[in-house]
Deep mutational scan, measured.
Amino acid sequence: MSIQHFRVALIPFFAAFCLPVFAHPETLVKVKDAEDQLGARVGYIELDLNSGKILESFRPEERFPMMSTFKVLLCGAVLSRVDAGQEQLGRRIHYSQNDLVEYSPVTEKHLTDGMTVRELCSAAITMSDNTAANLLLTTIGGPKELTAFLHNMGDHVTRLDRWEPELNEAIPNDERDTTMPAAMATTLRKLLTGELLTLASRQQLIDWMEADKVAGPLLRSALPAGWFIADKSGAGERGSRGIIAALGPDGKPSRIVVIYTTGSQATMDERNRQIAEIGASLIKHW
């Protein structure tokens, strides 16, 4: 067993022997301040990774656009098919120029040779490549099948209805392509620590998230040296922004954090800054 596999296998073990965790309302004060600064709703939840206990939450059962955070769930569904012998990570998928959609920095470079399922998941999570996500959605049967996968996990809230990039439209009061912070946090925890996926697939999923290259201005910008984070960000229309993450000190994750916002007129930089400040408060009061 590799060191990384050992780390993920012992996530519940280490967490069980940690000192009790206590909620700190100071972080919620910052979440509410972010709402004021952005002029928009902000949803927040913080779960203990081992027990699933909610440590703090704000608007945990209000719907927010998922945006690209759905790509972690998508690759979880792909990995479940791999575990069941219905898919192979090494299978190569070929596609054409007509398949390319807006923001496809990886797939646009491989029109000639195609990409493997493993490479597509890596591109979808680490670079948020939209064509990679659409190609992977095709392998599982489309958005409705991802929703069905989530329902089978016990998540009857999260739903995907459309493809990239239309799913980022974020129309107010439109339930399409949305989740709730509580539902997303619980589902992410199941994917990373539950028995739904094999140990190898859980490790692969967290490795992809740990290698995320496009979430630097968010929670990662607030992390002290030595902290662990595996995350996936999302951005959408109407001032929408979000991030889902597993993080913790001492090089291992111990909490799940989900943050979503929508309806702001603020710039992307300002949305990023507010999420980073929430992260800084979380870490300060850990």
Rank of each mutant, 00 (worst) to 15 (best):
K30Y: 06
G154A: 11
N168T: 13
M127I: 12
E62I: 07
A245C: 13
I243N: 01
S281C: 15
V78K: 02
E195V: 05
K252F: 15
A170T: 07
R81Q: 06
A245N: 00
I93M: 06
S80C: 12
N168Y: 03
I171D: 15
E26P: 13
R220P: 02
T27H: 05
D83V: 04
S57V: 11
L55N: 12
A132F: 01
T187A: 11
H110M: 09
E195K: 09
N152M: 13
T116I: 13
G76A: 07
R63I: 13
T193H: 15
Y103G: 11
M66F: 08
S122T: 14
T267G: 11
D161K: 03
N98E: 06
A148R: 09
A34V: 10
D177V: 01
F58A: 10
A246Y: 07
R63W: 05
S233E: 00
D212K: 05
G248A: 04
K252P: 10
T179P: 00
K252Q: 07
S57Q: 07
D36N: 15
A170G: 08
I140H: 04
A170E: 08
S122C: 11
I140C: 13
A185V: 08
S128E: 00
N50T: 10
K190G: 15
E169S: 08
D155K: 00
S281G: 10
G263T: 15
I45F: 15
P60D: 13
R91Y: 11
R63S: 08
A245D: 00
K213M: 05
E175D: 10
T131N: 04
T139N: 14
V29C: 15
F228H: 06
R92T: 09
P105N: 05
I206W: 07
P253W: 09
I93C: 05
E46F: 14
K284I: 15
V214C: 11
E166M: 13
W208I: 03
E119P: 01
P60C: 15
I140A: 15
L89G: 09
P165K: 07
T262C: 09
S281V: 09
K53R: 14
K252A: 12
R59V: 02
V157G: 14
V78E: 03
V257C: 07
Q265A: 08
L47G: 03
R41L: 12
L55I: 12
T138I: 14
D177W: 00
D113K: 13
S240L: 02
A132K: 00
P25K: 15
D161E: 10
K190C: 15
S221M: 15
L146T: 05
E145T: 09
R238V: 08
L167E: 02
E108V: 15
R238W: 10
L135N: 04
L150Q: 08
R59F: 03
T131Y: 05
S57E: 07
I93F: 09
R238P: 08
R202P: 00
G234C: 14
P181W: 00
M209A: 04
H285G: 09
